[in-house]
């Protein structure tokens, strides 16, 4: 794969998610998301995180193609951006919707199944983001691989969170779930060895 192309992709992997956050902010303060953009902001960040997770998992099957090996180096920035969006999604819910009412937040985190599932997913993504530092990667050695295999259960949790969060309808989360299942099926062998349990 040409070095220049890789360089461009590497830049886009950072620029696009950052630029979309900027656009979201602009759209929200300019009233383009309606007079009351809380739900739109939360959904946009949530769906965005899900799409970034999907992209992160698309990388390694693509990198197996002849000459595309360097793509693997994009997994880390994509994964970190996925965590960033998921964290912003969570923060937007805490701050813009629940108005930082901690008693309410504590209750919701325990009582609502879709929120429990989403929060579990966020914790996993947080652990993966923390351990993506190169120094920690080296120190964890083999354990690092096992730990990072948690991205697969996390992707299924993310789909469940999306599905159960909808008041009605199931088609869109089902599409995401199918895409993730396809990406997981491409790694059947690896999964059999690397599953964390």
């Amino acid at each position: 794969m040409p070095k220049r192309l890789f360089f461009l992709l590497h830049i886009l992997v950072h620029v696009i998610p950052a630029f979309f956050i900027f656009l979201l902010y602009q759209a929200a303060i300019n009233g383009k998301l309606g007079g009351e953009p809380v739900e739109a902001i939360i959904h946009f960040l949530g769906i965005g995180a899900l799409r970034l997770l999907l992209l992160t998992l698309v990388i390694s099957p693509l990198a197996r193609l002849r000459g595309f090996g360097p793509l693997n180096r994009l997994r880390r920035p994509l994964g970190l951006w996925c965590f960033t969006w998921a964290a912003l999604h969570f923060i937007a819910w805490l701050w813009l919707d629940l108005a930082l009412d901690w008693a309410l937040i504590g209750g919701e985190l325990v009582k609502r199944t879709y929120i429990v599932v989403g929060f579990l997913c966020l914790i996993i993504l947080f652990a993966l983001a923390l351990t993506s530092l190169p120094a920690l990667m080296r120190r964890l050695g083999k354990k690092w691989k096992r730990l990072h295999a948690w991205i697969y259960p996390a992707s299924l949790l993310a789909c469940l969170h999306f599905w159960w969060s909808l008041k009605s309808g199931w088609i869109e989360p089902a599409i995401y779930l199918a895409l993730f299942c396809f990406l997981l099926a491409l790694r059947k062998k690896k999964l059999a060895n690397a599953l964390p349990w």
């Binding site: 953009p37 809380v38 813009l96 919707d97 009412d101 919701e108 009582k111």
Partner: peptide, 18 residues
């Protein structure tokens, strides 16, 4: 899906002043 004990007020404040 939601606690019904409280509600977010939609008034003239901005999105960042929930």
């Amino acid at each position: 899906r939601w606690s019904q004990a409280s509600e977010r007020i939609i008034d003239n404040s901005s999105v960042f002043e929930a």
